[in-house]
Design a protein around this nucleic acid. Structure first.
Lengths: 196, 196
DNA sequence: TACGACATACCAACCAGTTGGTATGTGTGT
DNA sequence: ACACACATACCAACTGGTTGGTATGTCGTA
């Protein structure tokens, strides 16, 4: 494992815990077990690492979701519900372990560091897009007449999760995320009605 | 207007724009038009100001919502819908002008500064509580059998708004907040059904 | 004259980034 | 096979500007 990988991997944990601005380059080096020289060999600035961390986060989570089981069900609504189950299964007791690096960074640096804002936001919208197909098919099959479109529902799904992470940081635990996912599930079940 | 008020007032704008960690004491003094001596006369540390800013935010928004028109309608569901309309009316083009100081600070310092975490979180839960009465009455009148309780709905309302603010920082505008409020409105209308 | 409300000048610690150097490949001509 | 040129990966020590915080002084008012 190269120093670059160690730094990127460590940055996920450290930045999610302390936030981007409060994280110092020395913090990252200490957590990664490398020296400052190695840091600036691989990243030309702290901002450069911030952008790389957001991209790394996107690839990291992208792989996690792409390889998950929730794509299995034949029915698109079942896949969406399985996605929500999967999101719940990712929750753990420690807040920094389940919250979103992209959301954290985005909220912090959106006005000051456009490069990081773009990279972090892209990782969120990219992930939202992976849900659109399933929503599209579910809407076609089960959507009520007043059902919003797939893009909007996919985005709203992420909105609810991001908001829940903020509240979870207040409570110090994941319970509120479970509750928000339950609301989302209920909303979807009211919009997408299986004939019976 | 005293230096303390100027600092608190300026802190709302500055911290919402740059975030708490990236905001320096000098930034705040410059924005407030006071000197550093004045700052440390009124606040014993930067953290102390952070706590005071979160409390000030709670009072500031508390007054805004308490005095708003959305309490007028006789029907509780109408009051809730009017609340959502009011939230929409607060949106403007500039992101820092409509986002939530408490949510921003909470996400940033939840693990590092418990005093600020508590103050910021309290301002969110306090505000959520002001909705519970209306939700309670609306549920009693119109709630479907599977309708969640008032506390949970009030909290979910804040969750959706907080998440929408995160996304808005990515888009650089309030459109996504409007869309999320529309989803929330639709969810509530499916849960709380007026007999007709 | 005592005290609250500021202002000015200053400091020690910290932080992003630099410098100069070492160790270990890696390709190339002979 | 071997020397040479060069590149990559990394390290330890340093620097200059920044930052939170302090020490001390001044002014108005009760």
């Amino acid at each position: 494992m190269t120093a670059k990988d160690k730094l990127l991997s460590a940055s996920l944990a450290v930045i999610r815990t302390k936030g981007y601005a409060a994280t110092t380059v020395d913090d990252l080096c200490a957590a990664a077990g490398v020296t400052k020289g190695a840091f600036f060999h691989h990243f030309k600035s702290k901002e450069d690492l911030g952008v790389a961390a957001a991209q790394y986060w996107g690839e990291h989570t992208g792989g996690l979701f792409a390889g998950a089981e929730y794509h299995r069900p034949a029915d698109p609504l079942d896949r969406i519900l399985a996605y929500l189950d999967f999101r719940e299964s990712l929750l753990s007791a420690e807040v920094p372990a389940f919250t979103c690096l992209a959301g954290t960074m985005l909220q912090e640096v959106y006005a000051t560091t456009p490069t990081i804002r773009e990279a972090a936001f892209l990782s969120i919208t990219d992930h939202a897009q992976t849900l659109e197909h399933d929503y599209d098919q579910a809407i076609a099959l089960y959507g009520r007449p007043d059902c919003p479109n797939a893009q909007s529902l996919a985005l709203h799904t992420q909105t609810v999760l991001q908001g829940a992470f903020v509240l979870a940081k207040g409570y110090g635990g994941p319970e509120v995320v479970r509750e928000s996912i339950a609301h989302l599930r209920r909303y979807l079940m009211l919009l997408l009605v299986r004939p019976n």
